[in-house]
Amino acid sequence: MADEKRLSLNRREFFGHLAVGWSLFAAATGGLLALVFRFTFPNVNFEPTMSFTAGLPSDYEKGVDERWKNAYGVWIVKHEGILFALSNICTHLGCVPNWLPGEQKFKCPCHGSGYYVTGVNYEGPAPRPLERFKIVLNSEGKIFVDKTKIYRAEKGEWNNSDSFITV
């Protein structure tokens, strides 16, 4: 019944307590939401090791080396002057291909996808080449493979210097 005497906004008081209050409140609520967002990214995942040291480049012969295949799912390939780490997951449906040294190709037993020694697909249903993992030399000159970072040929990422080591 007392509509006439409404509270009016006085321009002089624009930065009055109300505005300050609301901005602080908004900042605090936004902060809480930001913290919630941050919370959804765990600080550590309960998963097996995603990186490893793989010895010296001189430890590897030309061609495909399978010594890390069982432990980490990685082929170390030395081919035409570069050393790179191929993922052993077929890009068709995720089986593990076999390396056939006689025919110099990776052949997936599930549906017959075939890849050259470079990892490029050329037969069967595989739609794209095998992925490369980050591979760098550490301060002792040893190879360090990091499976959390992948490089895809079809995106042109195989030119990225972290996806191969020049030998």
Binding site: H17, L18, V20, L24, F25, A27, A28, G31, L35
Partner: peptide, 20 residues
């Protein structure tokens, strides 16, 4: 009331920052 609101919001923000 506005003063109270501003004050409470301030300590709210401080507590969120403290949590961070």
């Amino acid at each position: 009331l506005n003063k109270v609101f501003a004050f409470l919001s301030a300590i709210f923000l401080i507590s969120v920052f403290w949590m961070l």
